[in-house]
Simulated assay, not measured.
Amino acid sequence: MTTPPGEPGGPAEGSRIALPPLETPDRLEVVAAWPVDAPYQAWRPQVLVPGTHTPGRPPRTFAVVNQKGGAGKTTTAVELAAAWAADGYRVRVIDADPQEAALSAWLRPQHPEGEEPRSLRSVFFEECTLAEATYPTRFEGIDVVPSGLDLARVEYERPVGAEKAVAAALAEDAEDAGSARYDVTLIDSAPSLGLVTVAALAAADEAVVPLRVGGLDVMGMASLHKTIRSVQRMLNPKLRVGMVLLTAWDKSGLARQLSERVAEDYPEVPVVPVRRSVRASEAPAAGEPVRSWAPESTVASDYAQAAGLLLAREGAA
Rank of each mutant, 00 (worst) to 15 (best):
V166F: 01
A167G: 14
A168C: 05
A169S: 07
E172W: 08
D176E: 14
D176T: 06
A177M: 03
G178N: 06
G178E: 10
A180P: 01
A180D: 06
R181K: 02
Y182A: 06
V184D: 07
T185C: 00
I187H: 02
S189H: 00
S189F: 00
S189D: 02
A190V: 03
P191Q: 02
P191C: 02
G194L: 00
G194F: 00
L195S: 01
T197K: 01
T197V: 07
A199Q: 04
A199P: 05
A200E: 06
A202C: 09
A204C: 10
E206P: 10
V208H: 14
V209W: 10
P210T: 12
L211I: 13
L211F: 12
R212L: 13
L216D: 13
L216G: 14
D217Y: 08
V218T: 05
V218M: 05
G220Q: 08
G220I: 07
G220S: 07
A222E: 08
A222S: 13
S223G: 11
H225R: 12
T227N: 13
T227C: 15
R229N: 15
R229P: 13
R229T: 15
V231H: 14
V231K: 10
R233E: 09
R233H: 11
M234V: 11
M234I: 06
L235I: 03
N236V: 08
N236W: 05
K238C: 03
K238M: 01
L239R: 07
V241A: 09
M243N: 14
V244K: 14
D250S: 15
D250E: 15
K251Y: 12
K251S: 13
L254M: 13
A255I: 00
L258P: 06
L258S: 10
L258E: 14
S259W: 03
E260G: 01
R261D: 10
R261P: 00
R261E: 13
V262K: 08
A263M: 02
E264L: 07
D265Q: 05
D265F: 00
D265A: 08
D265H: 01
Y266V: 02
Y266S: 04
P267A: 05
V269N: 04
P270S: 11
P270K: 10
V271A: 03
V271T: 04
V272L: 11
P273M: 12
R276P: 05
